[in-house]
Design a protein around this nucleic acid. Structure first.
Length: 387
DNA sequence: TCTGGGGTCCTAGGACCC
DNA sequence: TCTGGGGTCCTAGGACCC
């Protein structure tokens, strides 16, 4: 049986959400002027997190350095991100979507899929989606795009058509007309590198990709990815709308420094900072991790990374930090670096202690230190999505 | 002009085991 | 002296997403 899937995507999410808050406080609507959400303009490493439509019309793009955006538009309005507010906006947006179908998958903080099969029909789908879109706008003050298709891929592609505040369909029979003329880069999962590889073989459009022999594609991008690309370019996708939030598999924190660092004590201090953050997060979620990894990013953006497996899963900051400290010399040659990161993975959930295996008089001291840290950094356990 | 932060999945090689 | 096939786990790196 044919499915009906909606993909709902908040237009310029972070920027819109900042705007809603500002407008409610009597400030001008930054959506109507060139504006961006970004970091400190004085920090040359700030990048654009979100841009208004007028900013986009000036060629300002997401992830572009703020300094570059400011050159394109010296009058650019720059506002700071507000993660707690974003989470509230996201929750309110998802609540409205959920009224239309309980079969809802949060795809990111500002996107979700709805399986509308049995809740609307093909001929009424646009009407239903328009109602949803208008309800979000009137109740929450920001706009969304709704993409409609017979699977998640088509719905997602459709929501990316003309913005903002629009509903688009991409049914299977519309694929040749609406999707095949697009550049391959517009297809989900085709990034810069894949675009280059395909382009080198003269494959520039989704339609050309759809008509390419999967065996040839496999030589370019590997068998598994080739299969998926070929299916998707032909509009096929049978991924279900997953209502259960998957358990996280890893947790990491990174710090990019205002100036490149080369002094070992400076780098160690930053390593300490990210280890505290990561360990705190997994304690909050009730995980212990068995694998620790550390990475540095050099001036030329090359990354060196190394990981190790711990003898026992842990959530103790000191143990995670020490693992990181042991790894660091293997990946860092002492030349200036712009970023350090630490991550943990291979989680376990059980709370059984293994103090017997782990006779360390300092352990209780470490745990108390962690409890103090957690108390000082207490925040409601977040159901936070990434962006 | 100088490029953030936080994730997921895949690949490929080596170690090790039967 | 040269030799198998399959499986799992670990690790480093790469590509993508928002």
């Amino acid at each position: 049986m044919s499915r009906i899937i909606f993909h709902i995507d908040v237009n310029s999410a972070f920027l819109s959400w900042n705007a809603v808050k500002m407008v409610s406080g009597g400030e001008p609507d930054i959506r109507l002027v060139p504006s961006v959400v970004s970091g400190d303009p004085a920090d040359r490493r700030s990048i654009v997190t979100a841009a208004s439509m007028p900013a986009k019309k000036l060629g300002i793009k997401t992830a572009e350095p703020l300094s570059s955006a400011l050159r394109k538009c010296p009058d650019l309005v720059v506002v700071r991100g507000d993660w707690e507010w974003y989470k509230r906006c996201s929750a309110a947006f998802v609540e409205i979507c959920r009224r239309y179908s309980p079969v809802l998958q949060r795809f990111s903080i500002d996107e979700c899929f709805l399986d509308m099969t049995g809740r609307t029909e093909k001929k009424t789908a646009v009407e239903t989606a328009t109602r949803l879109k208008d309800e979000v706008k009137s109740q929450l003050g920001f706009t969304v795009n709704v993409g409609i298709g017979s699977n998640k891929l088509l719905a997602k592609m459709a929501s990316d058509f003309e913005k903002p505040d629009r509903v688009h369909t991409l049914w299977m029979e519309e694929v040749p007309g609406k999707m095949w003329p697009l550049k391959v880069r517009d297809l989900l999962w085709v990034g810069k590198k894949t675009e280059e590889k395909l382009g080198a073989r003269g494959i520039d459009t989704v339609g050309q990709l759809a008509g390419t022999d999967p065996a040839l594609l496999a030589e370019l991008v590997g068998k598994k990815f080739a299969q998926q690309l070929h299916e998707n370019a032909n509009g096929r996708d049978d991924e279900p709308v997953e209502t259960e939030r998957a358990e996280p598999k890893s947790c990491s924190a990174e710090r990019t420094f205002a100036h490149d660092l080369s002094a070992p004590e400076d780098v160690d201090r930053q390593l300490f900072n990210v280890a505290c953050i990561v360990a705190h997060r997994i304690r909050r979620e009730g995980f212990r991790a068995q694998c620790v990894s550390v990475a540095v990013k050099y001036k030329d953006f090359s990354v060196s990374q190394k990981q190790c497996t711990l003898p026992h899963p842990t959530d103790v900051t000191a143990i995670i930090l020490n693992a990181g400290r042991r790894l660091l010399p293997d990946i860092w040659d002492g030349t200036p670096i712009r970023q350090v990161s630490l991550g943990v993975s291979h989680f376990v959930r059980d709370r059984s202690e293994q103090l017997v295996l782990f006779e360390d008089s300092r352990l209780e001291y470490y745990r108390q230190w962690d409890r103090d840290y957690d108390a000082a950094h207490a925040r409601p356990a977040g159901d936070d999505a990434a962006e």
